[in-house]
Design a protein around this nucleic acid. Structure first.
Length: 430
RNA sequence: GCGGAUGUAGCUCAAUGGCAGAGCGCUACACUGUGGCUGUAGUUGUUGUGGGUUCGAGCCCCAUCAUCCGCCCCA
């Protein structure tokens, strides 16, 4: 067996055969489109960073347990980037005085996390990151949510398939305060909320009580988490939803007091999008407002809002819903056949003429039986096949066949490009 | 790091401890200048790897590797 002698790919890495590459490029194109219609600039950071960049800011777990770390030839520890935000912070800080704020940046690239691969999660993944920096307002938060909604809509997901759930850290902190939860316990309680959907109600109650909350705090917490009108008590969220209305994406967004996002650095609005109907319960994107982005890299205080979306979960969801555009193997819609050895160069010359006329075209690379060449064309998703046999060569003509409907005609060589273009245009309209 | 499952043809999967199979695919022909559709014929194996038990192992046992599903974690 071939696999016996094959060196396997590194665990958790991704191999993009043309079909998967098409999906990745599709997601990239849709992310670019959503970003750019809102005026965001594309940027990127190194894939390799020193471990120090992450040590200060990120959770311990992320660096110590979930990053690829190795020594370079000089013995210095290097990390394959597990996230983008620290790199963003450094790059902003380095040119804080020169950049034009408010700054809107987006990026799409590979990240690595040393985790156990399972459904919706691999060790190597692509992530779309987008941030607005230098503005601190619910309206700015709304814009980022609108970008996310625009993307979700552009890939064909309707509001009943995918929804963005919103909450606010300050609102929840106020609720926790009212329940008498000390500020140093907030993270613990947030963790409890995050875990709640994975446990039975009874088990969760017991778990909460075991971890330091009183019965009355538990009761109060459950009341808060069940109150979907709570946003009306938050001036920020009232303004946020008003802005979402104006931006035309309100139907994709819902307030949900159960959205916490366990991250240390979110300080205001937080949001997370979920697929409501599929098999993946993982968040498809998530983000929020953060302050002090530059605190650890020595810049002046800077507030921002942003989110990240991974390609793996998104790909699964689109696949399950049949929303992935059909894969066409050949980027060239035209095949020029090679009838026999004597007419080989005649066909090659035709490909050059067609390319000069702006048509993507591939030649069969050697003489072969026509059935074989047509079969190849069919499998590659090719729409038009040309034949130059002895008859055509004699009269200076070319036979052009439309594979979609099986019709063909023989035209003057000077007319070939025009004939093909017409076929391709009529197919594109359907 | 912890728990569970699965590895058999290119793919999807069968096979009481007793001759390793089917469908799809692939190749050829029908159709020597035309793909898809149809028919006929043909083709496909170190049963993940290494050991053990047995007269005999795809099947039972041990180890190992890989994949999948959970837990943990999710920046």
């Amino acid at each position: 067996m071939a696999s016996k002698s094959t060196i396997p790919a590194v665990k958790g890495t991704r191999e993009f055969y043309p079909e998967e590459m098409a999906l990745r490029n599709y997601l990239y194109a849709k992310a670019a489109q959503a970003s750019q219609t809102f005026g965001y600039q594309e940027w990127d950071a190194p894939f390799l960073e020193t471990i120090d960049l992450y040590a200060a800011k990120s959770g311990e777990e992320l660096v110590k347990e979930q990053s690829f770390v190795f020594n370079d030839r000089g013995g210095d520890p290097i990390t394959l980037r597990p996230e983008l935000t620290p790199s963003l912070a450094r790059m902003i800080a380095a040119r804080q005085g020169q950049l034009t704020f408010p700054l809107r940046w987006w990026s799409f690239g590979p990240f690595w996390r040393y985790e156990r691969p399972q459904k919706g999660r691999s060790r190597e993944f692509f992530q779309w990151n987008i941030d607005m920096l230098g503005v601190n307002s619910p309206e700015a938060d709304a814009e980022l949510i609108a970008v996310a909604a625009t993307f979700i809509q552009s890939v064909g997901l309707t509001p009943d398939m995918a929804t963005i759930f919103v909450n606010n850290r300050r609102l929840m902190d106020a609720q926790f305060d009212a329940l008498g939860v000390p500020s140093e316990q907030r993270m613990t309680v947030s963790g409890m909320v995050d875990r709640r959907p994975k446990m039975s109600p009874e088990a969760w109650d017991a778990y909460v009580l075991e971890n330091g909350l009183t019965q009355s705090q538990l009761d109060g917490l459950k009341k808060v988490l069940a109150n979907y009108d709570l946003w009306q008590e938050s001036d920020e969220l009232v303004r946020l939803f008003k802005a979402l209305d104006a931006l035309g994406v309100r139907e994709y967004v819902k307030f949900d007091p159960n959205i916490m996002r366990g991250l240390l650095y979110y300080t205001g609005t937080v949001f997370e999008a979920f697929d409501l109907s599929g098999s993946v319960r993982r968040a498809i994107l998530g983000g929020g407002r953060y302050d002090n982005l530059l605190a650890d890299v020595g810049g002046d205080p800077l507030s921002g809002v942003g989110f990240a979306m991974g390609d793996v979960v998104m790909g699964i969801i689109l696949q399950e819903k049949g929303l992935i555009p059909p894969f066409v193997p050949s980027p060239a819609p035209v095949l020029v056949t090679v009838f026999d050895e004597s007419l080989w160069m005649n066909s090659f010359a035709l490909t050059a003429e067609l390319r000069a006329a702006g048509v993507n075209v591939l030649a069969y690379p050697e003489p072969a039986k026509l059935p074989k060449q047509f079969k190849f064309a069919d499998r590659m998703g090719i729409r038009v096949v040309t034949v130059i046999g002895p008859d055509e060569a004699e009269t200076g003509k070319v036979t052009v066949k439309n594979l979609a409907n099986g019709t063909q005609e023989t035209v003057e060589r000077s007319e070939v490009a025009k004939t093909i273009t017409k076929i391709l245009e009529s197919a594109a309209q359907q």
